[in-house]
Design a protein around this nucleic acid. Structure first.
Lengths: 142, 142
DNA sequence: CTAATTGCAAAAGCTTTGCAGCGCA
DNA sequence: TGCGCTGCAAAGCTTTTGCAATTAG
């Protein structure tokens, strides 16, 4: 199991809840999931994992660098697999879907803007809230 | 009173709590305040305003366009006066202080990035989390 | 076997809401 | 005077924590 390697590296025992959560992120077409999302999906598949455990696992995975946490508008944290390469997000205001993008110019100008003002950038989050102009937008969430 | 004009325009009666809150934003050297910040400051000055009222007033001011709400990391909303011109934020990881900046290149590339992917940008938030390299950093909050 | 992990329930933070009374226009 | 506004307390949400029972290595 690939999962066990990841977990071992993070110093975490490979338990059922952890493997389930990790699998969920890998086999879901929506890459951005909240604790509630995960909890419900696991209930659906009969894998009963306590909500508290979901929160604990997510926090551990974030600290281990397996997941990245985002705080979009709406008061709940959303997580995604850490695929190594940083990217920013476009959040669809109609359906809540999240699309990823990367712009090298924006990245470098951010670092520069911080440096010019006497800061050394540690992290940053850029979220664009937008309406989808394509007809395929499923208009669901939010 | 300038305040009354702003409030009238927003269709809001000019009451004590509203005027106090508005004044606080205008006369504070820290431009970014949370509901709790405001509540505490009003207690200090003997202007007893209920916390629920602070929240209601902030929400009304946001909807009226007088204030802008930000969701920095940490789970609480932070507000600032809406001065018309958009800007992004650098949040100091040591002291929690917020510095503002504007970069025209970043702005235009954001719009472009969204458009290229079939979105029309409605709003965006860019926050840089950074360490202050200047010795003046007061190292307080967080 | 032993420490790590889990589930449940309780609690903690931030924010919202119901309702009776107060205050601006 | 009348409707809007306020304050208080209660409730709502997301997230965290205490603790006894369970499980991985």
């Amino acid at each position: 199991m690939d999962h066990q390697i990841y977990l071992k590296k993070a110093g975490l025992k490979s338990t059922l809840p952890r493997i389930k959560v990790l699998s969920l992120f890998e086999n879901n077409d929506e890459h951005h999931l909240s604790a509630e999302d995960i909890y419900k999906q696991l209930l659906l598949t009969g894998d009963d994992v306590g909500l508290a455990t979901v929160y604990r696992v997510l926090t551990q995975f974030e600290q281990a660098g397996l997941l990245v946490r985002h705080n979009f508008e709406g008061g709940k944290s959303v997580f995604e697999l850490n695929q190594g390469e940083h990217h920013d997000h476009i959040v669809c205001l109609q359906c809540g879907r999240v699309e990823e993008f990367y712009d090298a110019v924006i990245e470098s100008r951010q670092k520069k803007a911080a440096a010019e003002r006497g800061f050394s950038m540690q992290d940053h989050s850029l979220n664009i809230y937008a309406n989808c102009t394509k007809p395929k937008c499923p208009n669901k969430r939010r």
